[in-house]
């Protein structure tokens, strides 16, 4: 068993596979006070398996909103978001939760680890939710912590880890249930340059091992590490290289 259930690395010239994410003319409006914010205005994109995409753009341009739609934590006001062929907008809360648990990994800017749990327990959390047996999830958590270079720190709590280490634990947690898609929102936003570079390397390795990675970032180095960079402005995609 490999850490990410390795798929053959496609490389830039590989045959074009079916996309795992397909966003079609998606709009997202939400109320803010008396006004309505048009966070997304007719966005369309596709993410292939093993894709490595960076979404960049100024603050408030809709990057995180788009990521939330792809992560099935939000629904489009109009348009369609298909993840692995399933319409995210049509899923009920329970289905969406189950879908996120098994198909999507999330990494956040602020890590959001459970402060009172150890690194290993944090990684075990999604597996426990998925009903993985205790011994199996402990073994997989160790394997994942080894993968992110924190095998020796499994018993440490988040407070005892550096920011970079915490983010690596968060990445290991995101990979716990072998998701096909990893979504990261400003994953290097709270890290120094050197630590950020380690995270970039880790994402690259993850992607090589078969996980589609989509990052929202202001970090030019992280964006440069992706195969494709999607530029957004005012809720729209302004440039998007072909996949």
């Amino acid at each position: 068993m490999t850490v990410t259930d390795t798929l053959p690395a496609p490389g830039p010239n590989a045959r074009k596979p079916e996309p795992i994410v397909r966003v079609r003319d998606a709009y997202r409006d939400y109320p803010m006070g008396k006004e309505t914010v048009h966070a997304l205005r007719g966005v369309s994109l596709e993410i292939a398996p093993c894709d490595n995409v960076a979404i960049v753009g100024p603050s408030g341009c809709g990057k995180s909103t788009l990521l939330n739609l792809m992560g099935v934590v939000d629904r489009p006001s109009r348009g369609q978001v298909l993840i692995e062929g399933r319409d995210a907008g049509a899923m009920r809360d329970r289905e969406a939760t189950e879908f996120r648990l098994r198909h999507i990994g999330f990494v956040f800017q602020r890590f959001y680890l459970m402060a009172m749990l150890t690194a290993r327990e944090n990684v075990e959390l999604p597996m426990a939710e998925a009903g993985v047996a205790s011994a199996e999830r402990a073994a997989r958590a160790r394997e994942l912590l080894d993968y992110v270079g924190l095998g020796a720190r499994e018993r440490h709590r988040p407070g005892e880890l550096s920011g970079g280490e915490q983010q690596r634990v968060a990445i290991a947690r995101a990979l716990a249930n072998r998701p096909a898609l990893l979504l990261a929102d400003e994953p290097t936003g709270e890290l120094d340059v050197r630590t950020g570079a380690e995270i970039i390397d880790l994402f690259r390795r993850l992607n090589r091992d078969g996980t589609a990675v989509v990052v929202v970032t202001h970090d030019a180095e992280l964006a440069a590490a992706a195969w494709r960079t999607i530029h957004m402005r005012d809720g729209q995609i302004v440039s998007q290289p072909a996949r």
């Binding site: 934590v73 329970r94 939760t97 996120r100 990994g105 959001y112 939710e129 995101a174």
Partner: peptide, 16 residues
């Protein structure tokens, strides 16, 4: 609240 939203995002059921 943030922690709870993250738990929900990573797939922890509401009931849980």
């Amino acid at each position: 609240l943030g922690e709870i939203a993250v738990m929900r995002a990573i797939g922890v059921r509401r009931g849980r």
